[in-house]
Amino acid sequence: MPDDHHGRSTRLDAVVRDRGIDAPAGTSSAGASGSGAGPQVARVPEPHVHDTFSVEGIDTKRREGLLEAVLRDRDGVSAASATERNGTVGVHHDPSVSRDDLRETLESCGLVVDTADRAFEVRRASQFASARVAVAVLFGLMVATPYIAVLYPTRIEWLFYDPVTVAYLQSLLDSRMATHFFVNLGALSGIAFLVACGPFIRRAVRGLADGRLTTDALFVGSVTALFAYSTAAAFTGFDGVVHYDLVAYAVVGATLWTHFGVGETAPDSAGVAERPADGSDAPTDAATDDPVAMTDGGR
């Protein structure tokens, strides 16, 4: 679909003109009840079912409103919701209107429609990415807190507590209690690395298997070496400094860097299924006979 940010006409505009649809520009749910704060709803007949599509091309709020108007103009469609934020379109419709019919309508507006399987995999990959961010941040805080409270004062004495407190903390680290302390830190930082940096690890392995030394491989190798060094310093006679905190900071930084679009933003290919070659759809994954439908994507 051509860009319409500068007023150029698009296929969606052409469909609206051909059907004589009047959809106010700048609105996303013309015709739904209410225009103020809170979710907008529309009444749908009891037998109607719901289909959700993952699409590309809803780039503006204006397109949301136009697309919803086009869908509601179809016979058998009682409510429609287009959401620019996550690229989804929800349609409440009579069972006589097939998913393929709705797909053709969307494609006639210049949108790229993912298959049902692909849409599900994309949503699942997005959920996993959010879960990795949560694991990285929460486990990173759980590692950083003991370091700030116990280890950093003993390493940078002038910055923290008085000498008596520092001596007490050092005595704790010299006792057998330190073993349990470092076991917890090692487990937390290790789990955070394996879970949050799973995509980095898989890409690094694939690159090495192909004989390529990638930045992912360098990152994974560096963090693994640092973790191994810290483990040796904590649980063997090796005299070194335990740096599980640096492992946690690296995991948090890399995860946030990737998730918020500064680094690689494409979904991990191991977690998203390829689009079927024949373009066929799987059975719909959303159906409801609830007579009240959200028509603004849940905003």
Rank of each mutant, 00 (worst) to 15 (best):
residue 251 V to W: 06
residue 196 A to N: 03
residue 185 L to N: 02
residue 94 D to E: 10
residue 216 D to E: 15
residue 172 L to V: 04
residue 18 D to L: 12
residue 269 S to N: 10
residue 273 A to Q: 05
residue 165 T to G: 05
residue 271 G to R: 13
residue 284 T to C: 07
residue 221 G to L: 04
residue 244 Y to C: 07
residue 147 Y to H: 13
residue 11 R to L: 09
residue 178 A to I: 03
residue 98 S to P: 08
residue 253 G to N: 02
residue 174 D to E: 15
residue 202 R to V: 13
residue 295 T to L: 05
residue 24 P to S: 00
residue 241 V to I: 15
residue 4 D to E: 14
residue 198 G to A: 14
residue 219 F to D: 03
residue 45 P to L: 02
residue 221 G to H: 01
residue 20 G to A: 06
residue 127 Q to G: 07
residue 285 D to F: 07
residue 2 P to G: 15
residue 205 V to S: 14
residue 22 D to M: 02
residue 119 A to V: 05
residue 63 R to Y: 06
residue 240 G to C: 12
residue 226 L to Q: 10
residue 250 A to W: 08
residue 93 H to R: 10
residue 64 E to N: 04
residue 165 T to W: 04
residue 56 E to G: 04
residue 269 S to H: 11
residue 130 S to L: 11
residue 133 V to M: 07
residue 166 V to L: 02
residue 178 A to S: 15
residue 29 S to F: 07
residue 64 E to S: 09
residue 254 A to W: 07
residue 244 Y to N: 05
residue 195 V to K: 03
residue 253 G to V: 04
residue 84 E to I: 03
residue 276 P to G: 08
residue 47 P to C: 00
residue 69 A to S: 14
residue 227 F to A: 14
residue 222 S to I: 07
residue 13 D to V: 08
residue 97 V to N: 00
residue 211 G to R: 10
residue 65 G to A: 09
residue 210 D to S: 15
residue 60 T to E: 05
residue 66 L to G: 02
residue 74 R to C: 06
residue 250 A to Q: 10
residue 212 R to W: 01
residue 252 V to R: 12
residue 247 V to A: 13
residue 232 A to I: 14
residue 296 D to N: 14
residue 120 F to G: 12
residue 117 D to I: 03
residue 239 D to M: 05
residue 66 L to P: 02
residue 53 F to N: 06
residue 158 W to N: 08
residue 176 R to A: 12
residue 22 D to N: 11
residue 230 S to Y: 02
residue 224 T to M: 12
residue 41 V to Q: 11
residue 36 G to M: 04
residue 237 G to S: 14
residue 6 H to C: 04
residue 76 G to N: 08
residue 99 R to N: 06
residue 196 A to E: 06
residue 273 A to P: 00
residue 122 V to I: 15
residue 291 P to E: 08
residue 123 R to Q: 14
residue 185 L to R: 03
residue 269 S to Q: 12
residue 46 E to L: 09
residue 126 S to Q: 15
residue 193 F to S: 00
residue 158 W to I: 04
residue 79 A to F: 01
residue 29 S to D: 15
residue 78 S to E: 04
residue 292 V to M: 12
residue 211 G to S: 12
residue 29 S to H: 15
residue 38 G to W: 06
residue 21 I to R: 13
residue 229 Y to A: 13
residue 42 A to C: 02
residue 295 T to G: 10
residue 88 T to Q: 10
residue 56 E to N: 03
residue 54 S to C: 02
residue 208 L to C: 11
residue 8 R to Y: 07
residue 130 S to N: 12
residue 21 I to E: 12
residue 155 R to T: 08
residue 298 G to M: 07
residue 15 V to D: 09
residue 207 G to Q: 11
residue 116 A to Y: 01
